[in-house]
Amino acid sequence: MTATGPTTSAGDPLGVETLPSLPGLGGLYARGAASSGRIAAGRALPNLPVIGQAREPDDGPPVLPGVAYRVTGVETGGLATHLRDYQRLLHEPVSDVMPAGYLHVLAFPLATAVMVRGDFPLPLLGMVHLANEVEHRGPVRVGDRLDVRAWAENLRPHRRGVQVDLVAEVWPDGGADRPVWRGISTYLARGFDLGDGAAGAAGADDRPERSERSERAPAGTWTPPLPTGRWALGPGTGRAYGAVSGDRNPIHMSALAAKAFGFPRAIAHGMYVAARALADVGTARGDAYRWTVEFGGPVLLPGTVDVAVTPVAEPGTPAAGFRYVGWNARHGRLHFEGGVVPLGP
């Protein structure tokens, strides 16, 4: 722990563990599956002895590991082809400038590595991505050397369990005043509680209010706007994004695997649809922007998503950015909504 090292958003210092390189997501899911099983088994059978580092079921309330992972000197010179594949898949123009969604792909395996630690109190598999918030402060190009950090913070109650923020940061290697990219991914672990009776309390959580509404609102109570676009997402959408992002969570890969987690079919990655919306905004987003998304009902694959990506109409403020919303036109159900707002210097 150092004075200049990472702290949580609340200012709590974190211990730093420096890893030699960015982990790959594929292998992490295998580890995540093992530890998820351990945690699930621990919950189901409290008296079963648990092997390994996983916390004992009677450890008391879940506590996040007070550690940040860090990888310095991340070379991106070899990523040109991978970036091109990402850009083509997400309908981004092909260039050597990394869109914010690509930096998520780059940095998030480090956050996932935090989630598969033995002392991480929640199971990776089965967690629900509620929301994502990214501050992208300027162009990052193929060839830039990066310093990537990730940790978990802000474990808090949610109506249906507990939610946690996974924070990832991308810094220019060699230091700077602030990260060039910072992403906060909010996840829900259903059925868990913090042991203080707070779970289930109405209003215990602030951010996912909208997601809750959209997930639970009966059809017809939400009036969609006129669409500006329509995405026909094929059955392989999850596999394609899984291949390029490394996020091969089984719920995205096949109907059979998704059924095991309670979905009727495979579902699209949240970051895929959010990144498609970001791409739709196009060059109007500029080099620095805040990109947010809140997820509602999952996008089942194959499927059609109607989207409205519209400028925030505030006369005289050309930099007000865009709002976007995606929904299922047949059922009138909200899938996601968010914004892309240019950031000042």
Binding site: G220, T223, P224, P225, L226, P227, D306, A329, R330, G332
Partner: peptide, 9 residues
């Protein structure tokens, strides 16, 4: 056809 439930239609 899918605009039926949208605003302004």
């Amino acid at each position: 056809k899918s605009l039926a439930s949208s605003e302004a239609t």
